[in-house]
């Protein structure tokens, strides 16, 4: 399946690597930190791209392949993002699994998660959160809008992602859907 987590640009890519390697016993040589275009070495299982200088928003990116999934014990993106955000005192955006490109899940440092809407016009360049689909406890300044009544159609199984601190959300999507 693969993992992709977009951390707040102020997040240290080095720290992401350190936490992952320490927690899951991953060889640091297989979890590269830097621009993948400049990498030459053994086949990686994951990499972390630091946010470019001056980049705001969510430009520090962790990406892992199938071997990384195995190394972290099959955690979902939401589980891993929650764990890392708490550990690194940061926040991140992850895909909400739906067809609407502007709907993402925000994970905050306190372990909370919920859906937010990002600016579609800037989405190919950067993540700019416009509004949330429910209040964000640690960021009340984010405007809240009611989700449209056709939001179910964004998800192929018709299951709308939940929000909050509920540990049930840590189950794999297929289990949580039932």
């Amino acid at each position: 399946m693969g993992i992709e987590i977009n951390f707040d640009s102020r997040t240290s890519a080095q720290r992401v690597q350190e936490v992952l390697c320490a927690r899951y016993g991953i060889d640091p040589a297989l979890l590269y930190v830097g621009d993948l275009g400049e990498y030459s070495g053994p086949r990686l299982i994951a990499y972390v791209t630091p946010a470019p200088e001056g980049e705001r928003y969510f430009a520090c990116v962790l990406e892992g392949g199938p071997e990384f999934d195995e190394a972290i014990g099959g955690l979902t993106e939401l589980q891993l993002a929650t764990l890392l955000c708490k550990e690194l005192d940061t926040r991140a955006l992850i895909d909400d699994g739906g067809g609407a490109a502007t709907s993402w899940i925000l994970v905050t440092a306190d372990g909370w998660h919920g859906r937010v809407i990002v600016d579609d016009d800037r989405l190919d360049d950067e993540f700019v959160i416009l509004e949330a689909l429910q209040p964000v406890p640690s960021a009340p300044e984010i405007p809240v809008v009611e989700p449209p009544d056709w939001q179910k159609g964004w998800y192929k199984d018709g299951k709308i992602p939940t929000s909050g601190f509920d540990p049930d959300d840590w189950r794999k999507p297929s289990e949580a859907a039932g």
Partner: peptide
């Protein structure tokens, strides 16, 4: 692009 050739998620 080398970044993609090196990408562990792309098989």
């Amino acid at each position: 692009p080398s970044a993609l050739a090196n990408n562990p998620a792309v098989t």
